[in-house]
Structure formats: C-alpha cells, structure tokens
Amino acid sequence: MGRRDIDESDFRSRPSKRGSRPRTKQRPEHSDAVTGLVTGVDRGRYTLLVKDPDDDATGTSDGRIVTAMKARELTRTRVVVGDQVDVVGDVSGGEGSLARIVRIQERTSTLRRTADDTDPYERIVVANADQLVIVTALAQPEPRTGMIDRCVVAAYDAGMSVLLCLTKADLASPDELRALYEPLGVEVVVTRRAPTGRADGGAGGDAGQAVGGLVLAPESVEEVRGRLRGLVSVLVGHSGVGKSTLINALVPQAKRAVGVVNDVTGRGRHTSTSAVALPLPVAVAEDEPSDAFDGWVIDTPGVRSFGLAHVEVAHLLNAFEDLDEVAQECPRGCTHLADAPDCALDDWIERSPDDERAARAARLSSFRRLLSSRTGSDA
C-alpha cells in the first residue's frame, strides 16, 4: 500500500444521538472568490495578501492586506502560512473588515514536524515553500549537527531544496560543516559580522542588524539574497543563531526582534513567536525606496527539537537518486545502515573506480548519518 498523508480533514464525527436535520451535500461554489496568500496567523485570524488581478505573482508587493477567518466547513482543517486560499466576503482590506476563507488550494509542498520521534501528530510548519534555509551559528551557540540533519531530512521528505546558512564566520571556520553537508547536495552560504565603524559600508547597515557593536557584512547579506531570489524560502534555526538579525538585513521593514545568547546556557531566547511571510525586496538602499520584490522569506519561531515520526525511510531514500537506484538491489527489509548485512550500498563503494571512491564514501556516510537521525537523538 502506498503512502497516504492524513491530516485534520480526514476527521469524521458521529451524528448526534438526538438526531439532526439532514444536511445537503451541495456546497456553494463561491465562484466570486478571490485568491489570497496567507502571510500570518494569529489566534484564529489570518492575514492575507490579496493581489490585484493586473499584477503578476512576484513583480510588486502591491495588493490588499485582508483579515479573514475560516469558514465553518474548514473548522478542522489547518490553514498555515504559505497557503494559497480562496476568500469571499469583505476583501476590501478596510479597517474592521473581515473576509472568509472557503477553500485551501492544493499545496505544492508541506513542511512538517512532530514534537518528538514517537509523537503521531504531525504539525504543519508552512506550505508551498520551495526551499528550507537552515540558519546555524558557527559559534555562540555551538552548531548542533543533529538538529541540522533532522531539518535536512524534513526538507527532503517535503520535496524542498536545502540551503545551509552558516552565520558568525568571524568567530569560527565553516570548513568542517561544509565537508559534512556538501556531499549531500546541500548548498552552503556563509555570513560574517564586521565592526559598525568599518569604512567599507559596515557603518551604514540597516537598523536592527547591529548586535554588540557588529553588523552583518553587506557582501555576505547580498550573497544570501542571491540564493533566495524568485523562491519561497523558510528560515529555521535555534534561538540565538542570528536568524532574526539576518532577516532584518534582508527585509529592513520586518523589524524582527533580536535576542542574545545566554552566557551560562549557551542558548538564545525565543524572539520570533509565530511564522510570518515577508516579501524579499529587490533593493534595500534607503535612497532607492522600492515596493518591488522577488521572492518570499518566511520566518519561523526558534526551535529546539524537530521530530521526524512522520518520515518514512523509503521516502527519504527517494531524495538521493543515485543511492535509491543502488538500494533496489538490497535484500528485503534492509535498513541501509552501516551494520546492515549484505547492503548493496557497501558493494557500490567497493566496486567504484578509484577516482570516485572517496566522494561516494563521503556521500554514503552523510546519508547514513541522516538515516540515523531519523530515529536517533539530537547531537
């Protein structure tokens, strides 16, 4: 039997013992509904961006900010940031107006997590994202590869690409983490901080970038921006790794709260309390104001765990085409781990040409590390 995703919409309640009036199966078509992008969720109210029909999807940020609630028939269906929804009612965006979400359009991707590896309840983080950006500090706090591995697994399971953003390169070298993740096909980008009084532009950083007399070096911010253009990117990371600082540099009007790392525990304080989608500006210079944007950045609350109870091993293997093809020769029930007897992946290494063996071995080792994180604990 193939894999089947189950969510809140699969719930069916029993009829009342007192009986009820037969309900018609016909539902309004809502042919007059307009499409909105969910950019924020707050206690049952949804912030939507409703685009004007003449605007293209990513050309300008012109549109109406509309507040909406869910229609009754969607009571048990979760609407999340990134969803494209059909909306009826008052979509003027005027003060005090309230629209109604009547449909959720088909999702192209769904990033999920569970509380731990035994929790059967899946929590949808965001929908319709193209790329997961894992923000990790190289120091203060120290990087946790177990957490990175789990985020990579969740992204591949969702069909998303992965970008590893290593921050605070002014404190430590990124070489070790590059060697761990580049064999998996994970792209890596590095940011560093510079003193606010630098003559090359560091002093002119946007408000909210400065932390402890430092700002993000403009060239490293622009390198990150280049990896986000034209995409819907979700940023995740532990508290204190510099995620909010990075977002403020990319989207100055965001003004996300910036926290500090506790000197005793080495952990940061949660500053982002809910997911929010922000348009990625094409230009950020103060003397060149522009509403044009090219992509979306979704900030998420800091996390300390990323459960993977929903991820199937076979589905993870599908993300690695070369390994998946070789694994078809494995005996039935093979775990593909290092201690698995007669695993075809080990033979693949032994049979490889001398000039490819090291690269193949590194890729298999990295894959098995991800596989172990599926049921192991955080590093």
Rank of each mutant, 00 (worst) to 15 (best):
K168R: 13
E219H: 02
V234Q: 02
V234A: 09
V188E: 01
E219I: 05
V188R: 00
K168E: 03
L216N: 04
V236I: 09
I247Y: 08
R193L: 10
G240I: 01
G266T: 05
L177D: 01
R229C: 06
L164H: 02
G268L: 13
R267Y: 11
R192Y: 13
L171H: 05
R229M: 11
A169L: 07
V189D: 02
G237R: 01
G242W: 07
P183N: 09
T245N: 05
A210S: 13
A217V: 06
G208I: 09
D263Q: 13
R193M: 15
P195I: 03
V190N: 00
E223R: 06
E219W: 00
K255N: 15
R227L: 08
V189Q: 04
R227C: 10
L231T: 15
G240P: 02
A194V: 15
V188Y: 00
A254W: 05
G226Y: 00
G268N: 08
A207Y: 15
R227W: 08
G197W: 15
G212V: 10
E223W: 02
A217R: 07
N248W: 02
G237N: 07
S244Q: 01
G208A: 14
V251Q: 06
V236C: 09
R193E: 10
V261M: 07
R256P: 01
V251H: 01
V251L: 08
V215T: 15
P252R: 03
G240A: 03
V236G: 04
G204L: 12
G237F: 02
V224T: 03
A199K: 13
G266K: 10
S173M: 10
G240D: 08
G212H: 05
A172H: 06
V258L: 07
G197E: 13
L231W: 10
P174W: 00
L216W: 10
A194D: 07
G230S: 06
V241E: 02
S233Y: 12
G201W: 14
R193I: 00
A194I: 15
R227I: 01
D263H: 14
V224W: 00
N262M: 03
N248V: 05
L166V: 05
V232M: 10
T167L: 06
A203R: 15
L177T: 04
T245S: 14
G212P: 03
L180G: 01
V258E: 06
S239V: 11
A169R: 02
D200Q: 14
A203H: 14
G226R: 06
P252V: 09
A207T: 14
G197V: 11
A207V: 14
A179F: 13
L164Y: 04
P252L: 08
H238M: 11
G205D: 12
G212K: 09
R178C: 11
G205L: 08
G259Q: 07
K255F: 09
V264Y: 11
T167K: 04
Y181P: 00
G242E: 06
K255Q: 14
G205R: 13
Q209C: 14
E223K: 05
P174A: 01
R267C: 02
A194C: 13
G240F: 06
G230C: 09
G204C: 09
L235P: 10
G237C: 04
G213A: 06
E182G: 03
G230K: 05
L180M: 12
L171V: 10
R227F: 07
L214P: 02
A254S: 11
Q253L: 12
E176A: 15
R229P: 05
V211F: 07
L184S: 05
L250R: 01
S220W: 04
T196Q: 11
P252T: 04
A257L: 11
